[in-house]
Measured scan of single mutants.
Amino acid sequence: QVALSRTQVCGILREELFQGDAFHQSDTHIFIIMGASGDLAKKKIYPTIWWLFRDGLLPENTFIVGYARSRLTVADIRKQSEPFFKATPEEKLKLEDFFARNSYVAGQYDDAASYQRLNSHMNALHLGSQANRLFYLALPPTVYEAVTKNIHESCMSQIGWNRIIVEKPFGRDLQSSDRLSNHISSLFREDQIYRIDHYLGKEMVQNLMVLRFANRIFGPIWNRDNIACVILTFKEPFGTEGRGGYFDEFGIIRDVMQNHLLQMLCLVAMEKPASTNSDDVRDEKVKVLKCISEVQANNVVLGQYVGNPDGEGEATKGYLDDPTVPRGSTTATFAAVVLYVENERWDGVPFILRCGKALNERKAEVRLQFHDVAGDIFHQQCKRNELVIRVQPNEAVYTKMMTKKPGMFFNPEESELDLTYGNRYKNVKLPDAYERLILDVFCGSQMHFVRSDELREAWRIFTPLLHQIELEKPKPIPYIYGSRGPTEADELMKRVGFQYEGTYKWVNPHKL
């Protein structure tokens, strides 16, 4: 086992960053958080920038500027975001240094004079007029057009580079997404736009490419001749908990499936790229999406959770019991969808996408189930092999396979070949997804960000279904809070070829 401390991990990262040409360590950078008073800024962006600063992973002359409508001070920003920093008493001095680099400007999102004030403020910072500028839009999409237009007109660096990070949702359907994309691309070049999907920053999602293309053993079996089906799962054990009003506007397909799960599907299904260059990788992902037809209604199961009468606390409440959810809402909190990649490698292999709230566990994984062994000599005792990439929690890679049961006879039983990170790298604290992705933006690497043509294809696949749901308002199937979801989803999976045995229990190697 390799035991690495946080300091050692960050030392390795620093070495990698400083050796590259793309990370300008000594240049002045300004990180501007648009929507600095909001939840995302408070819980994710400010803490992430602090962790990067604490670990010495930001360029040395980096300033952080918050911008929002609320009249706040840096002290206010500190008060609301610091509880999420997880700072230790030993880091007190470092924390003071961090907040000394912070400033805040209040202004409207659609007022040109406010942006001119913001620009004057940035120019007044040390070497601010020639600094590289990175704008993070932690804002609702309704203000994107006004904000990007004003940034472009008043706040661009004339000497350094300018980059803009856009948070999902990128529209509600193909038409609104196209409108937003066309607007942003009329102001910024594609190499300046970073559409963030934080799932692409997760260690195991990034590991998929290495697993596939750096190991000879997987190449020959990664196709329709050997793989019976692919299941991509995202499960949350909690409901909307008072935030249903926002969720109800989008629903589970827009929230998770059309982005996170579809991105994971691309990494499983794509061909080997010409290189690890950002556009070479994204070219292959677009090719996969172009091979997927629009979702067919007979390959869809929609569910909505109801309270568990035997549960406790939140578990007793259904989705419609959330006071922020519109009365009688038919918005799905669970969806199972089957897609097919219609190309030579994957023809006929079902890709089953499942996601839901208020389920029995927290889990995100990719599961490849292989065909049955031909010419069975073990009297149907063999179960199908599976390769599982567990994204969260407890990152893991393992192969479910058959071995001989101890004893006199040739009785096979299920076991696993474990390729888990935790076994080799004991207690290594890896940077989280937002840390990686923000560092990628500083480096100018777009590999783990969504390109406009990729986004367009993703919406093309799901828009007809979303429009049909909005028009017909089908009643989702009720499922109990804390269950596996509607049984109809299991029946759909069985119908397209997935075999669920229920006889195997994964042993978490992190707890051995």
Rank of each mutant, 00 (worst) to 15 (best):
S275D: 07
P476Y: 00
Y421C: 05
H371Y: 07
E395P: 08
S275C: 08
E413D: 15
K505F: 14
D453I: 05
S415P: 02
I352E: 00
A335D: 01
N427M: 12
N385S: 04
C291V: 14
I469T: 14
V268Q: 03
H448Q: 09
N360H: 06
A332S: 12
P393Y: 03
N343E: 05
S293P: 12
N411G: 13
Q263D: 01
M264H: 02
V349F: 04
G497E: 09
V301I: 14
V337S: 13
A396C: 13
H467Q: 12
D283A: 04
A458T: 00
Q381A: 09
G303A: 09
W506D: 04
V325M: 06
G318H: 08
P412D: 03
F334H: 07
N299T: 12
V397F: 12
P476Q: 03
S415L: 01
G444L: 01
E344Y: 06
E365G: 04
N411K: 09
E488S: 10
N423M: 11
Q381M: 10
R484A: 04
A358R: 06
P273R: 03
A489V: 10
F351Y: 03
E488H: 09
G407E: 10
N259T: 04
S275F: 06
V295A: 15
D418H: 01
D432V: 07
P273M: 06
V388L: 06
D280E: 08
D280N: 10
V306S: 15
M257L: 12
V397E: 00
A458P: 05
L465I: 15
K494E: 15
D432W: 07
W346K: 04
E470D: 11
V325T: 11
P478V: 09
R384G: 07
A364H: 04
K494Y: 14
V256T: 09
E491S: 13
M408F: 11
F410M: 11
N360Q: 06
I389M: 10
M264I: 12
A396N: 05
E416C: 06
R367H: 02
K404R: 00
V288F: 09
N277L: 14
G485S: 04
K426C: 11
E314C: 12
V450D: 02
R367M: 00
P326Y: 07
T463F: 04
E294C: 13
R390W: 03
V373W: 06
D255S: 03
R367S: 03
I438E: 02
G444W: 01
G318Y: 03
Y398T: 01
S278V: 08
C355S: 08
M257E: 02
V441T: 13
A332W: 01
P431I: 07
A364K: 05
N277Y: 13
K317W: 09
D310Y: 15
S415G: 15
G348A: 05
G303P: 01
T331G: 05
A336K: 06
A433F: 04
Y425R: 04
A489Q: 14
Q381F: 10
I377L: 15
D279F: 05
V349H: 01
I292D: 06
N259R: 02
K405H: 10
D440L: 02
T324E: 07
L439R: 11
D255W: 01
E361S: 07
L267Y: 01
T316V: 10
V301S: 09
M402R: 00
D322G: 05
Y421V: 07
I292C: 15
Q258K: 00
V281G: 08
K494V: 12
C443E: 11
I480T: 15
Y398L: 01
K290M: 07
N298W: 07
W346L: 00
P431H: 11
N427R: 07
S483N: 09
D310E: 15
K285E: 01
V256A: 08
L417H: 04
V373M: 10
R424M: 05
T331W: 03
V341Q: 04
E361K: 05
W459K: 02
F378R: 03
N299P: 07
T324V: 08
Y305D: 02
L465K: 04
K357E: 03
M270T: 07
R484I: 00
G303D: 02
D322Y: 04
L353N: 05
W346I: 02
R362L: 09
S275R: 08
R367Y: 04
Y398E: 01
F370V: 05
L437F: 03
L492R: 01
N298Y: 11
L455K: 03
P431G: 12
L262K: 05
R484N: 01
N423A: 14
A336P: 02
L359F: 03
E435Y: 05
N385L: 03
K429A: 15
Y421L: 12
G303K: 01
Y421N: 01
G497F: 07
Y479S: 06
E501G: 10
K426A: 13
C266G: 09
D432I: 07
S293R: 15
T333K: 05
Q468K: 11
Q380H: 12
T420W: 05
L261R: 05
P464A: 10
E413I: 11
K317C: 13
M270P: 02
V450C: 04
R254Y: 02
N394P: 04
R254N: 05
T316S: 14
F409N: 14
F351T: 02
S452P: 06
L302S: 08
V338Y: 07
K357P: 03
F410V: 12
E414I: 14
V341A: 06
K429C: 14
L387S: 02
R495K: 11
T503M: 14
R424K: 15
W506C: 03
C443A: 13
G502H: 12
K272E: 12
N427L: 09
S278N: 15
T276N: 11
M402S: 10
R390S: 14
P464L: 09
A297W: 15
R345N: 12
L439D: 02
G303Q: 06
G422V: 13
H371A: 11
L492C: 07
W459T: 03
L359G: 05
K475G: 12
M270N: 02
D432L: 07
K357M: 01
V373K: 07
G356F: 02
G502N: 15
L417C: 05
M408T: 05
I438P: 01
G422E: 13
R451I: 03
K426R: 12
A364V: 11
G502D: 15
I377H: 08
M493K: 11
D310V: 11
N394E: 15
T316L: 10
D376P: 11
P273Y: 02
T403A: 12
E435A: 09
